[in-house]
């Protein structure tokens, strides 16, 4: 079969189109485009069916596992697809590794090295026990995240735009330095012993719960499953849609109870608001998908992210 590949303006990307076998899949087409253009590797391509001019509806995105025949609409000989360059892509594991590496390295720099001399503090620095425990807690958290990235998470999308690496690194690295600056400050005022123990104890409990939530989410998505949504069940997922975010937010609350810095609370609020947006979107999606009609299960009544508030 012949596939005509155009860009959105209507101009042909590959002159004369591409000849493929009748059993070819979208993935085969993407490989063929890559072979012909060199620059556009498969994860950089977004292929859609053309939509009539003036139409407001969203175009159908071609799924890489499906056969091209499924998109030919009965006319089996030719197919026209619209190509969009998604720009340079990186693997999600690469993105997460670099964004989490920053805080993991930057925080100990503020703890171990005399960086505060550059900020005008000349005196001897007394390190409080809470600052040491905070270092362990912080490093454990980001080490855990990196390990989960490589050994636990299964991603619904293989890649992410390269620009996200810079954006996410800016977010994590700057907030990492911001929190580290205040928690390790020579003029830091520690909280009482009981508050510290409650904070770190609660936080650690939430980190373990967070890890278990990630294991449950991993098991929802089989190694060979092509994404797709399922109703998360078990443990905290029986009461909260995004229990992984719940435990993430509450473990930062634990850290902040123990360290008591405005910077830490600012980080927590910003992170919570970002995760709340994601959670609301996911909750809406799951409710829409599992509506109880045509044999589909009905999505159970649950908190979205922050029981007992939301």
């Amino acid at each position: 079969m012949k596939v005509v590949v155009t860009i959105r303006s209507g101009r042909e990307l590959i002159k004369g189109g591409i000849e493929l076998s009748d059993s070819a899949t979208v993935a085969d087409l993407q490989e063929a485009i890559h072979k012909r253009t060199k620059k556009y590797y498969p994860s950089r391509q977004r292929l859609t069916l053309p939509i009539p001019s003036g139409s407001k509806e969203k175009p159908t995105v071609l799924h890489y596992k499906k056969s091209l025949k499924e998109y030919t609409d009965g006319n089996g000989d030719t197919l026209t697809v619209v190509f969009k360059d998604l720009g340079p892509q990186v693997k999600y594991s690469t993105l997460f590794f670099w964004e989490y590496l920053g805080p993991l390295i930057l925080y100990p720099v503020f703890y171990y090295y005399p960086v505060y001399r550059f900020f005008g503090y000349k005196g001897e620095r007394v390190i409080h026990p809470v600052q040491t425990y905070a270092l362990y807690y912080w490093c454990f958290h980001y080490f855990k995240r990196i390990m989960e990235t490589f050994f636990v998470h299964r991603f619904s999308h293989a890649t992410s735009p390269l620009s996200n690496v810079f954006r996410n690194c800016a977010y994590y690295w700057s907030f990492g330095a911001f929190v580290a600056y205040y928690v390790n400050h020579p003029l830091y005022t520690p909280v009482n012993d009981l508050q510290m123990k409650i904070g770190f104890g609660f936080g650690l409990l939430c980190q373990i719960a967070n890890f278990y939530c990630h294991i449950l989410l991993r098991n929802l998505r089989g190694a060979d499953s092509g994404g797709g949504y399922q109703i998360p069940r078990g443990f905290l997922f029986n009461i909260v849609t995004c229990a992984n975010y719940t435990t993430e937010i509450y473990q930062w609350l634990g850290f902040n109870i123990a360290t008591q810095t405005v910077a830490g609370y600012v980080f927590m609020v910003v992170a919570a608001s970002i995760m709340t947006n994601w959670a609301l979107a996911k909750h809406r999606r799951l409710k829409k998908l599992f509506d109880g009609r045509e044999g589909r299960p009905r999505y159970p009544r649950r908190w979205i992210i922050l029981p007992p508030f939301l």
């Binding site: 205040y182 928690v183 003029l187 005022t189 360290t259 008591q260 810095t261 405005v262 910077a263």
Partner: peptide, 9 residues
């Protein structure tokens, strides 16, 4: 300026 209870400057 620090020191203060909320460790903020």
């Amino acid at each position: 300026s620090m020191p203060n209870k909320w460790n903020f400057s």
